[in-house]
Structures are given as structure tokens and as C-alpha cells.
Design a protein around this nucleic acid. Structure first.
Length: 418
RNA sequence: GGAGAGGUGGCCGAGUCAGGUUGAAGGCGCUUCCCUGCUAAGGAAGUAACGGGGGUAACCUCGUUCGAGGGUUCAAAUCCCUCUCUCUCCGCCA
């Protein structure tokens, strides 16, 4: 949730919200709603103080004056109730308007739409398309079973089979081991969460239509373990010395992919269910920009270790999504398409979701909201996609990246029938 | 799934069955001070969060919060309803 006080007083903050697409009118309207809320709140609190005082009088009063005092208190209460109704209306309107304002973009984020990103770094050489694209190759190796999945579960589902499963587990283990060595606490998260969790983590109301819902139980399937990880310190007051607190979450992720008909229909590039290792950091308000760079470094290290050619982009303000103030995407070269495609992404949410999560740090000068950040360590399914193109040899065999070999016991996987 | 018992401040724990100076006894912990050769023990004081308003500020003031949300009442930790979580017993189960 947006910081209303800063929105009022801090022009750069306000501009950041506008850069993300919030209209100046919407902001002004929110500020008006908020100030009228506060005005009414002041009146209500005064009345409530009088009402409280009147009630206390009754408690102390003798039987003789009791009747009269109760009547007097009753009158104050009638006034109070009328004003309270006003307040709750005003409050609701202000809250609803506040939800519409995204976290202001950082000043360093490039201003513009989806295509206005800035390439920060390019690593490795791009390569020509392999004999088979990932979809074909997955089928060829017996690693991806899409047809039966489509019959049984619908489109955008797949069975993963054979060595691909060992590679998946190797990726998980290798990534986890790396993160643990860097001080992350590994977590296997629940994949079902309550609505409040979705709201507090910043996914609702914006992304509601991307989320699977179990109506019977009022639960929602997470699209990323980030949602569940955000709940790990909900309502907590953390010690400053304990920060940054870093977690590495593993979970299956579920996405409806509404509105992506016809996009990325081949193979397992875009599916409804995949596994992912996600990084999540809680840090003090002063440390989050440094932490963002740290998460980016980890992501780059992982991509480098896997031998992928990739580039890092600084995502433009219009493409940040509501909660992120700044975001880097790591895009890996997908030879069959001859372009870079997003594999990992890391964002600084600053205090935007912490405000809803009510997660604070205890510092010398009192308490502050923490900053939260997250980043993909390894999106397994999509990583396999890139591996299927980059590790594929002209003879159809598959050369397992060095770093994964100890984790799966495979080095070169021969094509079937050879 | 069935039956029962509970959720109170950083922690433990009174108060709930008779609603009113209870933001909440008592204890532990923590902070400061005193005492003290050092430590231990002892003594004194302080010690919730959040929101609004005022002040340059230390701070002052009002409000909210006793799992969450509603309701009754002039007044709710206390009464009523719903939800949620924990514990015990039974059932079921990887």
C-alpha cells in the first residue's frame, strides 16, 4: 500500500507513481479523500472522548443522578454514531482509492512502457538455432509429454519424464545448496493461501484473474512462493541486527495464464504449473537498494554457471507491476526464437507490501516498516527449456552443465535409440 | 469428521460464570539509578503497539487495540453471534 503522507509531501514520490501510470487526478482524488477522512476522524475522536468520559461518569455516579447521566450519554452517542457512519464511508472510499495507486517507481527506473527498458549488461555470445527447438527436443528425448497432458488436464500442462526429472531435481538441489551457502534459509512453502495473504502480498486485487481459486475452501493457489514467503513475517517486529533476513523458497507455482491464448504455446515455456526456487529478503529501509543488487548478482551467477548467454534489463516504469519500485529482468537467449526471453526477475518492493504485512524493524529511532525484495533463483521448467536448446548437440545428445553433474549423476545424455 | 478446553502486553499469568476509575493485578525478562572489592543477592523507578491532532524538539494530547469480525449496552477483556487458530480425546490417514 502507498505511503499517503509521502504522497502528500514528497514530489518525487508522487512523480514515481505517475511514471507508473497513476493519473495525477487519481492521486489528487486519493489525497482529497484521505484529508476528508482525517477531518472526520478528528471529529469522531473528539465525540468519542466525550462519550467515554460520560460513560465513566455514570460508573461513578450515585443512584440519584444516574438516570439523567445515562440520558445525557445516550445523546452524545447518537451524535457519535452518525459521525461514525460518515467516517466508515469516507474511510472505505479512501482505502479503495489507495489500493489503486501503485508503488512509485524508483527515480532510477527508465520511464516508459514495456519496450522502454534499458539493457544494463549483456553476457555471453548469442547462438544459432539448434536442430530442434525445445518443444521438439523435449518430445524427442521423451522428456515432455504434452499430448496426454492436454487430454487429461487441458492445454498448458505437461508431464515431465525421464532424465528431465533428474535434471529438475538437480537444478533444485544445486540452487538450494548455493543459496544456503550464501546464508539463505531454505523453505518449502504451502501452495495454498488465504485471500488476505494474496492481498497483503500485493497480488490482489490486481492479479486476481491470474490466480486459481478453490472456492469451496476459500483458498488460492500461489503463482509464486513469494506470496507464502511474504507471510513468514507478517505482523512481526524484527530486530535490526537480524536483517537482511533471506529466504529461499521452493514450491510449485500455479498460473491461469488468462489472456495469453496463442502465446508461447509450444512446449513447456508457459504452463499452468511449474516449480521454482525463489529468493525473498526482508531488510531495513536503508539497505534495500544494495540488497536488490545482491539478488541480481545471485541471479547472474546462476545463469553464468549454467553457461547461458543472457542480458539484464532495467525494466521500464510502465512494466513494473503494482508493488515493485524497481525491477531487473534477466533474459536468456533462446536460439530457436532468435531473441532474449525472460527467465528470472528481481524486484524491490520497498515498503509497499510491508505496509500491509505490518512487518517492522526495531531500530534506535523507533520502528520502521521493513523493505521487501524478491527474485527468481531458478524457475525450473523454463530453465529446462533453455537448457534443451543450449545443451543440445548436433547429434541429438545432451551435455549436462558441469555444475549439475554432481546432483544428477549424468554428464552426456544420449538420444533415444542410439 | 465427532466431543471438549482455550487464545490477555517481550514472555508467563490473573481478571471473564455478578459488564463501569482495568491499558489491564502478580511474576519473569529488559532499561536506568542506588547499594556493592568483583559477581550473586538486594533496593528504587521505568518498560506495548498503531493511528489522528499540536510542537523545531524532548514531549503533550485524543483515539484504537485483551485471536479476527460483527452485535447488545450510556459503558464490553467480561454478555450474544460468526470466523479463525491452538490444545486434549475419539475417528481417519501419507
Amino acid at each position: 500500500m502507498i505511503d499517503l503522507r509521502r504522497l502528500r509531501d514528497d514530489a518525487a514520490y508522487r512523480q514515481g507513481a505517475i511514471n507508473k501510470g497513476a493519473s495525477s487526478d487519481a492521486i489528487d482524488e486519493l489525497l482529497t479523500l484521505d484529508s476528508s477522512r482525517r477531518e472526520i476522524q478528528l471529529a469522531v475522536e473528539e465525540l468519542r472522548a466525550r462519550s467515554n468520559a460520560a460513560s465513566k461518569e455514570i460508573g461513578k455516579a450515585g443512584p440519584a443522578e444516574r438516570e439523567a447521566k445515562i440520558a445525557a450519554a445516550g445523546e452524545i452517542k447518537a451524535d457519535l454514531q452518525a459521525r461514525e457512519a460518515e467516517l466508515s464511508g469516507a474511510s472505505e472510499r479512501a482505502d479503495a482509492a489507495a489500493l489503486e495507486i501503485p508503488n512509485p517507481a524508483a527515480e532510477s527506473s527508465p520511464v516508459g512502457g514495456e519496450d522502454d527498458y534499458v539493457v544494463i549488461e549483456t553476457v555471453g555470445e548469442t547462438t544459432d538455432a539448434p536442430p530442434m527447438d525445445h518443444a521438439e527436443y523435449g518430445e524427442f528425448m521423451g522428456w515432455v509429454e504434452s499430448e496426454k497432458a492436454a487430454q487429461n488436464m487441458g492445454s498448458r500442462f505437461a508431464y515431465l519424464k525421464g532424465e528431465a526429472v533428474l535434471l529438475e531435481f538437480a537444478l533444485v538441489q544445486w540452487t538450494m545448496a548455493k543459496l544456503v551457502a550464501k546464508g539463505f534459509t531454505p523453505v518449502v512453502t504451502p501452495v495454498l493461501v488465504r485471500e488476505e495473504m494474496m492481498l497483503d502480498a500485493g497480488f490482489f486485487p490486481t492479479d486476481r484473474n491470474q490466480v486459481y481459486e478453490l472456492a469451496e475452501d476459500d483458498l488460492f493457489l500461489i503463482g509464486t512462493s513469494e506470496v507464502a514467503l511474504a507471510g513468514l513475517h507478517r505482523g512481526d517486529r524484527l530486530d535490526a541486527e537480524a536483517l537482511p533476513a533471506r529466504y529461499a523458497g521452493f514450491s510449485s507455482c500455479f498460473r491461469r495464464e488468462a489472456g495469453t491464448y496463442g502465446k508461447d504455446t509450444r512446449g513447456i515455456f508457459r504452463v499452468h504449473q511449474f516449480d521454482k526456487v525463489e529468493m525473498f529478503s526482508w531488510c531495513g529501509p536503508d539497505g534495500s537498494w544494495e540488497e536488490l543488487e545482491f539478488l541480481r548478482d545471485v541471479e547472474q551467477e546462476i545463469l553464468g554457471d549454467l553457461g547461458f548467454p543472457y542480458r539484464v534489463i532495467d525494466v521500464a516504469t510502465g512494466d513494473l507491476g503494482a508493488p515493485a519500485a524497481k525491477k531487473y529482468d534477466c533474459e536468456v537467449w533462446l536460439p530457436s526464437e532468435g531473441r532474449y526471453r525472460e527467465l528470472t526477475s528481481t524486484s524491490n518492493y520497498t515498503d509497499y507490501s510491508a505496509r500491509r504485512l505490518k512487518t517492522r524493524v526495531k531500530g534506535e529511532g523507533g520502528t520502521d516498516l521493513v523493505h521487501t525484495l524478491n527474485g527468481t533463483a531458478c524457475a525450473i521448467g523454463r530453465t529446462l527449456v533453455f537448457m534443451m536448446e543450449h545443451c543440445q548437440q548436433p547429434d541429438g545428445s545432451f551435455v549436462v552443465p558441469e555444475v549439475l553433474r554432481p546432483y544428477c549423476g549424468l554428464d552426456v545424455i544420449a538420444p533415444p535409440g542410439s
